[in-house]
Computed example of a mutant assay.
Amino acid sequence: MRQDSRGKWSISTHLKITAALRQLACGYSPDALDEYLQMSERVARESLLNFTECIIVLYTNDYLREPDTPLFNSMLVEDMPDIPYHVNSVEYKRGYYLADGIYLTWVSFVKAFSSVVDEKRVYFSKKQAGARKDIERTFGILQGRCHILQQPARAYEVNHMKRLMYTCIILHSIIIEDNSYNIVENDWVYEPMVNMQNTWFKRCDARNRRARELRDREVYEGLRADLVQHLWSN
């Protein structure tokens, strides 16, 4: 306890930070800190939310890359550069994400086959699922550090849950850097530049064209077939 500027006794900043970290790292509920820190549930909850807000304000630019919302906004910008690559001697212009069956059938998603009829597809589905598991394990590591991610979230508003997730990611990145485990520098972030000299109609046409390309079923099936053959041959 300490005296504030009004001369009244209040909980110190150190105790509030301790309460926030215990909730993040150990998954304690706010009312579980009443006896240990002599802190009410309301103060513990507010301490957590204030802590997450401070972490995001101070460290977002250094440790958290701005997400695309929605994810494919940047792909619809006309000045976004192509990323050409070859699969099975066929050139493609867009990268892709590994996904399961709930995602849309777009060229930027490579999904496993819902039914496999030959050895090539069986092999591809195993490789695709294995690569997705690596990504899921990464989130498992984050859950291991921040046990609050394993707890029910009904008590939090959507905006609060988003701030909690961002804070956990930032703290995880800080720990990785402090332990010298980071393998790349993320100083460069692509920011699409819109050519303002183009008319509004031209920009709309370009956006619609890219949207059609993104939903091209023929390219989607072709990429997946080429990946199946590439994996089978190598």
Rank of each mutant, 00 (worst) to 15 (best):
T18A: 11
Q150C: 11
Q197K: 12
Q3H: 11
N182A: 13
H86K: 15
R209S: 14
R145V: 00
H160V: 08
Y123Q: 15
T18L: 11
V107P: 02
A211K: 15
S180V: 04
I102D: 06
Y92K: 10
L48D: 05
K8C: 08
L76D: 02
Y92E: 05
R45F: 07
N195V: 03
P81L: 01
P84W: 04
A211S: 15
C204E: 15
L64V: 05
N198I: 02
E46H: 09
N234K: 11
T18N: 09
T13E: 10
S47T: 01
L48W: 03
I17K: 08
L49F: 04
C204I: 13
S173N: 15
R42S: 14
K16A: 02
H172T: 01
N179T: 06
A112W: 01
D134G: 04
L24T: 00
T18F: 02
E213T: 04
E185C: 10
Y156Q: 03
W200T: 14
G101D: 05
E213H: 05
R132P: 02
E221V: 13
M161P: 02
I17F: 03
R6T: 11
I174V: 11
L171C: 05
N186H: 11
C204A: 14
H160C: 06
M75F: 11
D118C: 08
H172M: 05
D226K: 06
A153W: 05
L37V: 09
R224A: 04
E177A: 09
I183G: 05
S233K: 14
E119K: 15
I141E: 00
S40V: 08
H14G: 05
M193F: 12
D79C: 06
E185I: 10
D31C: 10
H86F: 13
E46T: 10
S10R: 14
F113E: 01
V194R: 12
L149I: 01
N61R: 11
N73W: 08
S5L: 09
S233P: 05
E66S: 12
P30G: 04
P152T: 00
L37I: 07
E78Q: 10
E191P: 02
V43G: 06
D34M: 08
I174F: 06
T13A: 12
L76K: 07
V184T: 14
L171Q: 02
R217G: 07
G130T: 03
W106V: 02
R94F: 12
Q197Y: 04
L231Y: 15
T13S: 09
L231E: 11
N159D: 13
Y36G: 06
E78A: 13
W232G: 02
E157G: 14
R209L: 13
R215Q: 15
R121E: 09
R42P: 01
Q3Y: 13
K133A: 14
